[in-house]
Each structure stands twice: as C-alpha cells, then as structure tokens.
C-alpha cells in the first residue's frame, strides 16, 4: 500500500542538516512527496515536515534511520486525525476580463486571498490541506494557470504536547 505519511523531524540547526536528512531518503530509495523546513520556537532547532510516500515498511525504516542521525533529536509520525496539516499555495492565473469575477468568486468560496491583480493575470494565495489545494488548482485550470508555487506540507500535533517532550515513535 503506497500511503502518504507525515513525519515531523526535530533537528539541531547545524549547517548541512537538511542535506543529511534529504540525502538519507534518496540513498535508501524512499520517496519524499514534500518537505518543508523552518525554525521552531527555539532558534537552536528546526522542524522539518516531510510527506513520505510508501508502505509501512518504508515508514518504519525511514523513521529509524532518521533517528540515527546525530543532528536529529526527535522523529514523530503524525496521525492524520490527531494533527493539523496545512500547505500554502500561490497560483497565478490568466484573467481575461470576462473571467476575472468568476475567479475571484471561486477564491472567496475557498477562503483564498487575492494578493495581486494585474491587467491580465491574478495571483491567489490559499492555505489548507493538500486535497483542498489540489481541488482549487483543478478549478483554476480552465482559465489558464501561468505559475504555481506550493510550500509543501507543514504540520503540528493537536493537543498540548510538543515534539520536544516525546520520544521517537515507531
């Protein structure tokens, strides 16, 4: 079963840590669906959120291999119903005068923001779960998509616990 899994990897902010983490995936033949990284509440640490595609074997192996890296402090497998997952989309769409209001209306329904309006194009910003982003992109396709930038998924677990105080899952 090729499922998608979300791994939250808590790492020390050392140079090269991102290539250690991403290199491990390619080396061991595991696929990264998306990867996003940024500082945490403690500037000494970063959180790398990785969406992995693979079966349970791949998930367990990559979790344990990641945990072995010296710069990796915690690896947590996020469960879909116990975590909040979001992605940010910027999409530039052709906006012929007769389409402009239709596009803006669709964006409003999706609670997306219009962030740039040009003579014949429009940039829309949308955050949400990846499925929502996919749906919105599909909706824009007939108007003519000029460019897309997606951040990849980022996620937090629900509830009061934090990644710093629980151990490597799996």
């Amino acid at each position: 079963m090729q499922d998608k899994h979300v791994l939250s990897v808590f790492v020390v902010n050392h140079p090269g840590v991102l290539s250690r983490v991403s290199g491990l995936f390619s080396r061991r033949g595991f696929n990264i669906n998306s990867l996003s990284v940024g500082e945490t509440e403690d500037p000494e640490f970063s959180r790398i959120t990785i969406v992995v595609e693979g079966d349970n074997y791949a998930l367990e192996q990559i979790t344990r291999q990641l945990a072995k890296l010296f710069d990796v402090k915690r690896v947590t497998q996020f469960k879909p119903d116990a975590s909040v997952c979001r992605e940010l989309l910027l999409i530039k769409v052709k906006s012929a005068p007769e389409h402009r209001s239709l596009i803006i209306e669709a964006a409003n329904i999706f609670r997306a923001k219009t962030v740039d309006l040009g003579a014949d194009s429009i940039i829309i910003e949308l955050t949400g779960e990846s499925s929502k982003i996919d749906a919105f992109i599909d909706l824009m396709r007939p108007y003519g998509i000029l460019e897309i930038a997606r951040t990849g998924l980022t996620a937090l677990e629900r509830g009061s616990k934090s990644i710093k105080n629980h151990n490597i899952d799996g």
Binding site: P15, G16, S19, R20, G23, R27, L69, F70, D71
Partner: peptide, 14 residues
C-alpha cells in the same frame, strides 16, 4: 569531504 563522506560516516563536522 564532509559532503562526500556524509553517507559513510556516523557523523561528520566542518
């Protein structure tokens, strides 16, 4: 050399 030896060391440093 740190980049080169990343996959063949437990850890490395610059």
């Amino acid at each position: 050399i740190a980049g080169i030896t990343m996959p063949i060391t437990k850890h490395n440093y610059i």
